[in-house]
Amino acid sequence: MNPMNYVYLSALLFSIGAAGVLLRRNAIVVFMSVELMLNATNLTFVAFARMHGNLDGQVIAFFVMVVAAAEVVVGLAIIMTIFRARRSASVDGANLLKY
């Protein structure tokens, strides 16, 4: 099997994640889609790390995980705050910042 298949898979997962961000209205599901996209890129990093024969890609993937964890914490806190105020977690509801 060609190791590039991992990369193809990653592209596929990334696109699915992007579609999720665009299509879903529940803020938490949108957030999950974002996580999926991050994971897809991580897969790419790991795959290329192996293809290149060094560990830099894995280190980067590690950092992505750390940052994603931090992002999840803050993001979920924001979603909770919004939910408290609006009694809704729909991303379309918070649209006052506009023209």
């Binding site: 961000v21 665009l22 299509l23 649209n95 910042l97 506009k98 023209y99």
Partner: peptide, 17 residues
């Protein structure tokens, strides 16, 4: 053009993509 600024995060995300 201002009308593009709908306030819907998903529209912006679409533009980004």
């Amino acid at each position: 053009f201002r009308r593009l600024q709908t306030g819907f995060v998903r529209s912006y995300a679409l533009s980004m993509l």
